[in-house]
Design a protein around this nucleic acid. Structure first.
Length: 633
DNA sequence: CGGGGCTTGT
DNA sequence: ACAAGCC
């Protein structure tokens, strides 16, 4: 009864998973088609991060050292792939292509080369359109309000591969009437094929695709037929719990169990390295902590999902005991148990227009002097600002905002974060206990970074001097010795700026947005002149907005992108550097209070140039500030 | 092995 | 401020 509720299957959705074949290599091939016939490898630092299938045919594999790779394939073409811009661009393009087909907007990217899509609504719709008398000549409708848009297909068979493989494709559907789930997966498979061929023919990218009823299963099943193919996980999905069997001599078993049972426990998405190791230890009756942590340790035996599932006493409670502990997600046991049983109810996230974080990082073999650090901080900060411009700046199509500027910020990050990974000092015996642990500090992102008039260099310099260096000193106090293997600079805590949208689906209530921003926004001001005077901002010391209310935000807002606020408060409050000071301002109270009264709230605007938020009446003065600023140059 | 970047949870 | 997870 304990985990019983969560352990029920829900197969009412149809989920498709796309995995672009050797994505990085494909990006280069698309840029330069001559590469397609050559063995091609993409290099990052000293390793081959991916290679095309011609290279694989000759025995090269992913993650080979470059030196090895050259030996394996002497005429290998090697391209450098450390700069990720082109991959990000291609990834977003493909993502937008797929998004264009959805009705619900439920499309989610995982990394650059994977996409989940929830096509439940489209499948539902087309299921109702089927003519049971002539399934072989069906039409798949892609748009609700234009019945001519779509494609013809044979609804008696699956498109592409299935698991388990079907010996006689049409046998199933002819002999017995298809059940509900089978019909929907057939529909899903044809739609998936349409999308997959579209990606190939229109965008030049082949992919491997899986079709099932949740993210876990669709992702795993897509691996069965790898380059340029698709696989649907066939019903039945349900276990026959007691006595009931379809057929006396041909008892059916769940294909889900059959399929997932063969996987190594560590191959299940959601069960990562740490969890897999702990489960293995338990199942193999190992002492709970062998303490090495370096590499593969001792456990060589592979432990499959079946081994875990059938282990005596195994279930959500036991898993909770194995996996639970301080700093571990609560309910991890039943979650893991669900995964082991092919159950995964997590939703496909709706497309977000704005990322919830942008960060830039690099790794180093040795980085232990301040001048080096300063140089890297500038380098990383420069590309961060550039990334903010490409990712967060959009064309300003609002005619009223004259004043020459053609771009506006679609979101303002409120927080900067600096992370480093100190290289652990060598062990007594010389063995390197490599740790992947990062440490970080964060603080308010000053608004001068949103300035579009002055050059990037001056912004970078200020950011480095006024924010990053102080944070660095907090991470690594003067006198301390360190050697860094990584630096990461990021901006987080995005606050979407209001759109004068007004029309259409998801029309948002602007006053609600501001209510949210009141609690989210925190304007601090660099104690310096020539920063845009922010006439308004959260004045809030001690005003803790606990409940932050996931705020589903009409359509697709950023669900909970403000985790760290309380922490930031504390950091700021105790910051000795006193670089920032809050600006108390009496205007606030005039308009910020009054939760329940909808009318007569002074209208607010966000400066197009620097992102500062203020009441409308403050805009003119603020604009004047900017023009002064401009003349200074 | 290991790159750069993202999300989620405590 | 991490830790862990995913690619």
């Amino acid at each position: 009864m304990i985990g019983a509720r969560k352990t029920r299957r829900n197969d009412s959705r149809v989920i498709v998973h796309f995995d672009y074949d050797c994505f990085y290599a494909s990006v280069f091939e698309n840029e330069n088609p001559a590469l397609k016939s050559l063995p091609l490898a993409v290099q990052q630092k000293q390793i081959v991060v991916t290679c095309n299938y011609e290279a694989r045919r000759r025995g090269l594999h992913k993650l080979a050292l470059i030196s090895e790779a050259k030996k394996i394939v002497p005429d290998l073409v090697i391209v450098l792939g450390e700069e990720l811009g082109r991959f990000r661009d291609a990834s977003k393009d493909l993502y937008r292509y797929l998004e264009g087909f959805t009705w619900s907007g439920k499309v989610e990217r995982l990394g650059f080369d994977e996409v989940f899509m929830d096509i439940t609504d489209i499948v539902d719709y087309n299921q109702n359109l089927l003519n049971p008398n002539d399934l072989a000549h069906s039409f798949f409708s892609l748009e609700r309000n234009d019945p001519t848009v779509g494609f013809t297909f044979d609804a008696t068979i699956f498109a592409g591969h299935t698991y388990p493989p079907q010996q006689m494709p049409s046998a199933i559907s002819n002999s017995q009437g298809n059940d509900w789930l089978t019909t929907r997966l057939i529909l899903g498979s044809h739609f998936a094929q349409h999308l997959r061929l579209g990606l190939d023919e229109e965008k030049g990218y082949t992919s491997s695709v899986g079709i099932s009823t949740n993210k876990l299963l669709s992702k795993l099943v897509g691996n069965l037929n790898k380059p340029k193919a698709q696989t649907t996980l066939l019903p039945p999905y349900d276990m026959l719990e007691d006595g009931i069997s379809y057929n006396a001599e041909n008892t059916q078993e769940s294909n889900v169990t059959m399929f997932i049972d063969g996987h190594d426990i560590g191959k299940i998405p959601g069960i990562g390295f740490k969890m897999a190791q702990r489960i293995r230890n338990h199942v193999l009756s190992r002492p709970p902590e062998s303490g090495t942590g370096s590499g593969w340790g001792g456990t060589k035996e592979s432990v499959t999902v079946r081994d875990v599932r059938l282990f005596p006493g195994m279930g959500p409670e036991m898993l909770e005991r194995i996996l639970g502990g301080p700093g571990v997600e609560r309910g991890i046991g039943s979650k893991a148990w669900g995964l082991i049983n092919g159950i995964d109810d997590t939703e496909i996230q709706k497309a977000k227009k704005v990322p919830s974080q942008i960060s830039i990082e690099d790794t180093y073999g040795r980085l232990d002097t301040m001048p080096q650090v300063l140089k890297e901080l500038r380098r990383l900060a420069t590309s961060l600002i550039k990334r903010m411009h490409t990712d967060l700046l959009e064309d300003d199509d609002d005619p009223e905002s004259g004043s020459g500027s053609k771009k506006r910020w679609s979101a303002n990050p409120k927080t900067v974060r600096l992370s480093t990974r100190p290289r652990p000092p060598p062990n007594a015996d010389g063995t390197r206990t490599r740790s992947f642990n990062r440490i970080s500090r964060s603080g308010p992102l000053p608004s001068f970074v949103f300035n579009l008039n002055n050059g990037i260099d001056s912004i970078v310099e200020r950011l480095v001097q006024e924010c990053l260096v102080p944070m660095f000193k907090r991470l690594h106090p003067p006198h301390a010795v360190w050697n860094l293997s990584l630096i990461n600079i990021g901006v987080t805590n995005m606050v979407e700026t209001a759109r004068e949208d007004g029309g259409g689906a998801g029309g948002r209530d602007i006053s609600k947005m501001f209510k949210r921003q009141e609690s989210t926004l925190r304007e601090w001001r660099v104690a310096d002149r020539d920063v845009p005077p922010d006439p308004v901002h959260g004045n809030d010391n001690n005003h803790h907005h606990n409940h932050q209310q996931a705020e589903p935000s009409a359509g697709d807002g950023a669900p909970n992108d403000d985790n760290d606020h309380d922490d930031n408060d504390d950091i700021l409050a105790s910051s000795e550097d006193a670089i920032y000071e809050t600006q108390q301002n009496s205007i606030d109270d005039a308009w910020q209070e009054e939760e329940d009264d909808d009318d007569e709230r002074p209208s607010c605007e966000i400066c197009r140039r620097c992102g500062a938020m203020m009441p409308a009446f403050a805009i003119p003065a603020h604009e004047r500030f900017h023009s002064l600023e401009q003349e200074e140059e």
